[in-house]
Write a protein that binds this DNA or RNA. Structure first.
Length: 717
RNA sequence: GGGCGGAUAGCUCAGUUGGCAGAGCGCCACCUUUACACGGUGGAUGUCGCAGGUUCGAUCCCUGUUCCGCCUACCA
């Protein structure tokens, strides 16, 4: 806290607080809040700035000054603080730079700021951290220091060397941004550019509407050098500054008043004085300025090349949210300005892969997961598939190893399925194989067709996560779990009449699946595809699968649902009876609806194969009443013969539990249907749906009861 | 400080005209059956962050709140 005494009343003083006392040498005003009863009468009067011979005004500023904070009086240093700079603009204050470009206390600057000779001698050429205690001491000795307090605050540092940033005035190049931003806002508002997911659109628009003029000059080595030259004779204030003692580099000082010559290449001479002594501005362009030109500068612009005509604008830009503003917005502005058209139609904002703690990966932070390492461990296809599967919109990815491992297993599954197919395809050359009209063939083509539909749709919607899940579900849980199992009896019998047709379907569906998978797992799909009969050199150039209406077969899909239910019950029964997997037993199956029952009859061989049993095709009424475990679900009843010394307790527990669940659900539905409000206000289709479910449940209940009674009888016997 | 997003099974995450809560991994039991144990079959598992509100009915819509994350600005 420092006292700034009033000029016309030295016994009265304003006390300002600062965390950077050394910058007081460059103060050009003290600000108070215009509504502050403590100080508002002082606005317009002057204080004497300690350690200098200057007098500075007291100004009223409601933006800079927070009534509640500090002492209520703020020192204003326009040359070394962003907020103070703005306040200086508002009050037309001079800007006194007392630091040089290396943030050392500057002799010239302090002289211009009328700093006392003795003070200058103490602090000249010192870095801020060393000057600060000296200033404190000087203030204390001269009685201006009120007190020192600890103060916690956030402070800007260099991202690389962590040095505290000292704001400093210097001439820089700026782009006047509003005329560029407005067309870029328009392009998104009227839909010429679509941002996906849509939620980020408001972020973009908000940022663009509030955009500030763009400082495009950088004092770094790499980059496009700014195309501006200065004539030395016309600009005498341009000179080389030697680095401070112990420092190697030199610094070209260009005064704010210097007049640049901007042209594409170095001019021969100054147009004013004819001198050839020209020096180029050493600054380079902001990386993002150069990058903003990328959509057309990479295609030969400003020449009207065929590439430029073909690829500008492009369809989709894929990028991370972190550079939506830095890069995307600026490409849009530059594209509209120089090409007169948007650079791309869709901007897909993908998720950011974060580390285990959810931190953004960054080279300078050093928390980067090396993809090469992950690829070595799990495979490139697995990593790629994982990233696609986790690309849900609006959510970042915390890379989880288990997921990658799971998809490594998926790749392995595909590999083994292909090996299986080759066992039966390798030396078979079926000429003109007949169309496959079998249940497994019709069903799997229908499912593949639906998978093509879903994957295509999700790709168009940029829902890579849903696309991968459809591929995974289809291949593992339909193609491998059911289709390959179903066709084994046909394949394993070399003389089977269905052989050629089945092999054709096997080969066709695998080939189509590989093309569908290819964008997600490029390597394994290519590798396997090459081993199948194929046209063309590589899968990369093959057409992406299209849905085929003649593959769609809702009847086969309905049949499959019955089949799956029945097999599920067979398997459950076997586990309940603790039968070993290989044991062949007598099984029964029946459906309460005649049509479905007939369908099951046609599936007898398939049921026997996957159920590992001998099917007894007899109606329910003729089933044995003892030594059969009966299970039931959704219209299907299956029976499995009870043989040998088995514990029926597990089976009974299951039936009891299923009965309880059925009752609970029935009560819930019944309760809703007896609620007058529900019946009068819910939509009719919901009510009929509830009624249907309740009816089905009560049928289930009857079957369960009879099955349970039989089982209890068997237990009692 | 401002803005945005998240919170759902042990873990990582899906889940929209509001109407039966899901996947993968993990877990439990059984299985070396001729593509695959990086596998097969069966199974268990949820106050959908918390509190209100709207509704016949809320994981879903509204309000408030807690915790976590991100972006952005930064207080003399």
């Amino acid at each position: 806290h420092i006292r700034y005494p009033l000029v016309d009343d030295p016994h009265t003083a304003l006390t300002v607080a600062t965390t950077r006392p050394e910058t007081m040498l460059g103060d050009t005003a003290v600000a108070v809040h215009p509504d502050d009863p403590r100080y508002r009468h002082l606005i317009g009067r002057k204080v004497r700035l300690p350690l200098t011979s200057r007098e500075i005004p007291i100004v009223g500023d409601s933006i800079l000054v927070d009534l509640e904070f500090g002492t209520g009086a703020v020192k204003v240093t326009p040359a070394h603080d962003f907020n103070d700079f703005d306040a200086g603009e508002r009050h037309k204050l001079p800007r006194l730079s007392i630091l040089d470009y290396e943030a050392l206390l500057d002799l010239k600057g302090m002289n211009a700021a009328a700093v006392e000779e003795s003070v200058i001698r103490d602090v000249v050429q010192l870095p801020v951290t060393k000057a600060r205690p000296k200033i404190e001491l000087l203030l204390r000795d001269s009685g201006f220091l009120v007190k020192i307090e600890d103060h916690k605050m956030a402070i800007g540092k260099c991202y690389r060397c962590k040095t505290v940033v000292e704001p400093y005035l210097s001439p820089q190049w700026f782009v006047k941004i509003k005329p560029l931003a407005e067309p870029a806002i328009q392009a998104v508002e009227d839909g010429r550019i679509r941002i996906i997911p849509e939620g980020w659109t408001n972020n973009y628009l908000g940022w663009m509407r509030d955009i500030k003029d763009w400082c495009i000059s950088r004092q770094i080595w790499w980059g496009h050098q700014i195309p501006a030259w200065y004539c030395r004779p016309c600009n005498t204030e341009i000179f080389i500054v030697k680095g401070a003692s112990g420092r190697q580099h030199e610094h070209l000082y260009i005064s704010p008043n210097a007049i640049p010559i901007v042209c594409r290449s170095k001019p021969e001479k100054c147009s004013k004085c004819g001198s050839t002594d020209l020096v180029r501005d050493p600054d380079v362009l902001d990386t993002w300025f150069s990058s903003a030109l990328w959509p057309f500068s990479t295609l030969g612009w400003p020449e009207q090349t065929p590439e430029l005509k073909t690829y500008y604008p492009t369809s989709t830009l894929v990028t991370g949210l972190d550079i939506l503003f830095f890069w995307v917005a600026r490409m849009i502005m530059m594209g509209l300005k120089f090409m007169g058209d948007v650079p791309f139609r869709d901007v897909y904002i993908h998720a950011l892969v974060r580390d285990a703690e959810g931190q953004k990966m960054s080279k300078s932070k050093g928390n980067v997961i090396d993809p090469l390492h992950v690829m070595e461990q799990f495979g490139t296809d697995a990593l790629r598939f994982t990233l696609a599967s986790m690309a849900s919109p609006g959510r970042d990815i915390k890379l989880a190893e288990e997921r990658i491992e799971g998809y490594r297993n998926f790749a392995n599954k595909i590999w083994n399925a292909a090996r299986f197919a080759h066992m039966y395809l390798a030396d078979k050359h079926d000429s003109q194989p007949p169309d496959d009209r079998s249940f497994p063939g019709l069903w799997i083509r229908s499912r593949l067709n639906d998978t093509i539909r879903i994957v295509t749709m999700e790709l168009e919607a940029y829902r890579f996560d849903r696309a991968t899940s459809a591929l995974y579900q289809f291949f593992w849980h339909e193609y491998c779990d059911w289709y390959l199992e179903l066709i084994k009896p046909v394949l394993q019998n070399p003389l089977h009449p269905q052989g050629p047709a089945t092999r054709r379907t096997l080969q066709d569906t695998l080939e189509v699946f590989l093309r569908l998978l290819h964008p997600f797992m490029p390597f394994i799909s290519e590798e396997i595809w090459q081993t199948l009969p194929h046209k063309g050199e590589t899968i990369v150039t093959q057409p992406y699968p299209l849905t085929q209406t003649d593959w769609h077969d809702s009847s086969a899909e309905e049949t499959f649902r019955l089949f799956e239910q029945s097999i599920g019950l067979f398997r459950t029964a076997r586990v309940l009876l603790s039968y070993p997997p290989g044991k062949e037993v007598r099984v029964f199956v029946v459906h309460e609806e005649p049509a479905a029952n007939e369908t099951l009859g046609r599936l007898e061989l398939d049921l026997a194969h996957l159920g590992r049993g001998r099917i007894s095709p007899i109606p329910l009424s003729q089933w044995p009443t003892s030594n059969v475990l009966r299970l039931f679900t959704g219209g299907v009843t299956v029976g499995v013969a009870v043989e040998g010394d088995v514990d029926l307790k597990k089976a009974l527990d299951r039936l009891v539990k299923q009965t309880e669940e059925t009752d609970k659900e029935s009560q819930r539905l019944d309760g809703k249907l007896n609620n007058a409000d529900f019946v009068s206000k819910a939509p009719p289709e919901v009510i009929t749906d509830h009624q249907d479910r309740l009816r089905a449940l009560s049928r289930d209940r009857a079957m369960l009861t009879s099955s349970e009674q039989q089982l209890r009888a068997m237990l009692g016997a």
